[in-house]
Design a protein around this nucleic acid. Structure first.
Length: 126
DNA sequence: ACCGTGACGGCGA
DNA sequence: TTCGCCGCCACGG
C-alpha cells in the first residue's frame, strides 16, 4: 500500500498513554473510562473513549476491560450496542467477570459496600 | 485556526 | 429513579 492510500492513523501520544495505563488492568478485572482518564491525567473520560474507539491493538491492549462508571458496558469496536457488545461481554465472561441472568455486570465491590458512588483509589476493581 | 463530535460523568429537575 | 444538560478535551474535517 502506498503512503498516499494508507489510511491507517498512528496512535497519538495521548492514545499511547491511555493504552499504557490500560495494560495495568489484568484479565478478570475491569476499570472505567473515568479512572483511566484520572490515571493519564485528564479530566475527560470522553477523551479516553476517543482513544479506545480506534484502538488498533485489541485485544492485546484490553479495551474490553473498560466499562462506564454507571456499570453499563460502554462500547466495543466503535459500536455502543449490538453484536460487538455481546462480544465484549463474552470476552469478559471468559475471563471470569461475573454477569447476572439479565446480562448485567455483577460488581462485587458494590455488593459488599452497598455504595452507589465509585471508590476513589483503585483504578481496577473486579 | 475553528468547530462539531463523541465507547463519559455527575448533578439538578 | 430516570432524563437532560453541561463541562470535559482530543481529534478529524
Amino acid at each position: 500500500m502506498s503512503p498516499l492510500e494508507n489510511t491507517y492513523l498512528a496512535p497519538t501520544a495521548f492514545a499511547q498513554r491511555v493504552y499504557a495505563a490500560l495494560q495495568q488492568v489484568p484479565a478478570g478485572r475491569v476499570t472505567t473510562y473515568g479512572w483511566l482518564a484520572h490515571a493519564v491525567g485528564v479530566k475527560s473520560a470522553q477523551a479516553v473513549g476517543q482513544a479506545l474507539r480506534r484502538n488498533p491493538f485489541a485485544p492485546a491492549v484490553p479495551c474490553h476491560r473498560v466499562i462506564a462508571a454507571d456499570l453499563h458496558l460502554g462500547g466495543f469496536h466503535g459500536a455502543r450496542a449490538g453484536t460487538p457488545l455481546a462480544h465484549k461481554r463474552q470476552l469478559l465472561a471468559d475471563e471470569g467477570v461475573l454477569f447476572d441472568a439479565q446480562g448485567q455486570l455483577v460488581e462485587p465491590w458494590r455488593l459488599w459496600s452497598g455504595q452507589k458512588t465509585m471508590p476513589q483509589s483503585p483504578m481496577v476493581f473486579s
